[in-house]
């Protein structure tokens, strides 16, 4: 089971690279788009990042030493893609000042309390935000979070605990 999506791994009988990558996408795209949405705030950008990550996986499929680690690879690629998008956005405006990019429809559906949480998440430093999203929004283990972020478990612990403390402060201030 993948903790991002609560779905079983894709069937193994598919053999062609495009079939295997597509099967992996079908099983995990929703969870990965949700991850990217939490990082970026809008579904269009999130889908672009996830599509790019799977295209990269497809391009390198033949040279993967362990295709069982493909999800780990693509999860890291999604995080990298999010960092690139945020980097470009933050060149123009600090992320917490940037206009919300969620669609009006999505904003209307999300309750006020959830919008506060998303806004507070966006004010965290990048590493703390990634650690908090992966550990506490998506329920990855410390090891999985460390592999996705390419950092040590100790750094995951410190980044997520600092992030949670900062979130608690911000949400308390707002309430």
């Amino acid at each position: 089971m993948d903790p991002l999506t609560d779905t079983p791994a894709p069937p193994v009988q598919v053999r062609s690279p495009s079939g295997q990558v597509t099967a992996l996408y079908q099983a995990h795209a929703t969870g990965l788009v949700r991850l990217a949405m939490l990082m970026l705030g809008d579904q269009q950008s999130a889908e672009d990042v996830v599509q790019d990550a799977f295209l990269g996986l497809y391009r390198r499929w033949g040279s993967l030493a362990d295709q069982g680690k493909a999800l780990t690879y693509v999860r890291s690629s999604v995080l990298n893609g999010c960092r690139t998008v945020l980097r470009k956005r933050s060149r123009r405006l600090p992320s917490y000042l940037e206009p919300d990019a969620e669609s009006a429809e999505a904003l209307a559906i999300l309750g006020e309390e959830h919008r506060e949480v998303l806004a507070a998440l966006r004010r965290l430093p990048a590493r703390q935000r990634e650690a908090v999203v992966l550990r506490h929004c998506l329920g990855l283990s410390e090891d999985e979070t460390a592999q996705a972020m390419k950092i040590s478990r100790g750094t995951v612990k410190s980044a997520s605990s600092r992030g949670l403390a900062a979130l608690a402060r911000m949400l308390k201030e707002q309430s």
């Binding site: 690279p17 949405m37 939490l38 599509q51 959830h114």
Partner: peptide, 29 residues
């Protein structure tokens, strides 16, 4: 805070429209 984060992640999932299909190039790598 952890509960609020999980609740927000779940609520966000409810706002998502269907994810578009993967568009791979027609040629093999």
């Amino acid at each position: 805070v952890e509960d609020r984060l999980r609740a927000t992640a779940n609520a966000l999932s409810g706002t998502m429209r269907e994810v578009r299909p993967l568009a791979l190039p027609p040629q093999r790598p």
